[in-house]
């Protein structure tokens, strides 16, 4: 920067100071120094801007706070709605369970007076296990059969309080003595990990076709005779002396909500009603 420019800058700065000095000496019509009016005029936009920005920030903060409150309220309402939906599902399940129980009792009119209804609370099809909960405080004996609306579900293997553990018919170690409804073919139905039943000891000469119904024969001493167990799904001949037969469980083990525990097995049950 040349000396001349420096001189001009200093001079201009001095002029500004002198003008401010003059403004401090002169009084306006209101009696205040003109400099005070200039200062107010210069500061007013800053004050206005500060006030506006502050007001805007306050409004934004209010909006943010309100939004947070609304978000919290919305979340609470969502939770309440979800709880209401869950409650509705439970109620629907209860109604469906009641319908299913009604249907089940209608199929077993003779034993329904002695059977104990129980609600399914847990099931593990791969392990072949189901847990049911009784309505009352009645104790259920071990090996009591459990039937659903479709047919045999399994047998009680443990009972504690209101809960009973049921070994499903598809459990690998479960075995049920079955026969065709006319009694021409008898076999032992054992569970498999595939969720199917394997019929063992069915001779090659047996007249058994795909779709044939299987019911309990009562030979095992656990299940009363005449309860539906399953339906033949495949019949194959093998190199062994017996046929390789598989069957699907009659009861829908994956969806049943209610079971009847046949505590009094003295009542015969060839009275299984086919009404649906």
């Amino acid at each position: 920067m040349t000396d001349r420019r420096i001189l001009l800058l200093r001079t201009a700065l001095l002029w500004i100071l002198l003008e401010l000095l003059a403004a401090a000496q002169v009084r306006s019509s209101s009696g205040d120094p003109v400099l005070w009016g200039w200062t107010r005029a210069a500061v007013a936009p800053l004050i206005w801007a500060g006030t506006t920005v502050g007001s805007s920030i306050a409004q934004i903060a209010t909006v943010v706070t309100r939004s947070a409150e609304l978000a919290s309220l919305n979340r609470q309402l969502e939770l309440e709605l979800e709880a209401a939906r869950t409650m509705r599902r439970i109620i629907d399940e209860d109604r469906a369970a009641q319908r299913e129980l009604g249907s089940l009792i209608a199929r077993l009119p003779e034993i329904s007076s002695t059977a104990v209804p129980a609600r399914t609370v847990f099931r593990d099809l791969e392990r072949g296990l189901m847990i049911v909960e009784l309505g009352g405080g009645r104790r259920i004996d071990r090996d009591s059969p459990a039937v659903a609306s479709g047919g045999v579900v399994g047998r009680v293997i443990r009972s504690e309080g209101r809960r009973c553990w049921i070994e499903l018919v598809t459990h690998p170690v479960a075995a049920i003595a079955v026969q065709t409804p006319d009694g021409r073919v008898q076999a032992l139905a054992v569970g498999s990990r595939a969720g199917e039943l394997e019929l063992q000891f069915v001779p090659r000469t047996a007249e058994l076709l795909r779709g044939d119904e299987l019911v309990t024969s009562g030979a095992d001493g656990i299940y009363p005779p005449g309860l539906p167990v399953g339906r033949v799904s495949s019949v194959r001949e093998s190199a062994e002396a017996f046929l390789d037969i598989r069957a699907e469980p009659a009861a829908d083990l994956a969806t049943n909500r209610v079971v009847l525990l046949l505590d009094d097995r003295t009542v015969a049950a060839p009275v299984w009603s086919q009404t649906r």
Binding site: L8, W15, E19, L21, A22, Q25
Partner: peptide, 16 residues
């Protein structure tokens, strides 16, 4: 002048 300042500015401006 009635106040100090304007004359100083004017004379220095003329000189510049």
């Amino acid at each position: 002048e009635p106040v100090v300042g304007p004359g100083t500015i004017a004379w220095s401006a003329s000189a510049v």
